[in-house]
Amino acid sequence: MSKEVLYGLYNDEEDLLHAVHAAHDAHLDIMDVYTPFPVHGLDDAMGLDESRLHIGGFIFGALGLLTAFLGMTWIFTADWPVIYGGKPYWSVPAFIPITFELTVLFAGIGMTVTFYIICGMGPGVINKTLDDRITDDKFCIAFDTHDFEETGLDKIKEFFSSTGASEVNIKTL
């Protein structure tokens, strides 16, 4: 499904932040903002909800912990108990290192894979970008023209010129 996007490019992140605040004040719904690096204060300015990724990380980690600890417990007490070096079958202190490692492993892999999935990214995925210079030194505010069919695009163009955008373009994604 293609989108027609009206976007403006800024030369500096401070200009960008002012513009985002101005858009918020003028009740203009921003489609997305693109930057070459994470800009502090941008999430708040855009009203983005906090990411819940770390909750996923915690859950994956807990899964790893249980897998490791319960797995080793079952193997060493039920499936094939062997006396190693005089240690008890359920040798809890010896289980700790592997339990810890698997907790970290599951948390890391789980969170990273989740991250790529929810962002729609992955090896070989090609997401159309608005401008090659966004990953260089330009900051971009993008509006979906579909949202402004009735009110017209002039309002947005005025917004861009008043907030100091260096370029304004339309692209179909």
């Binding site: 070096g85 005089g86 240690k87 202190p93 010896a94 700790i96």
Partner: peptide, 12 residues
């Protein structure tokens, strides 16, 4: 704590 405890426990 764990390092001290586990090593002493392990070597017995």
């Amino acid at each position: 704590w764990f390092s001290q405890f586990m090593l002493i426990w392990y070597a017995n």
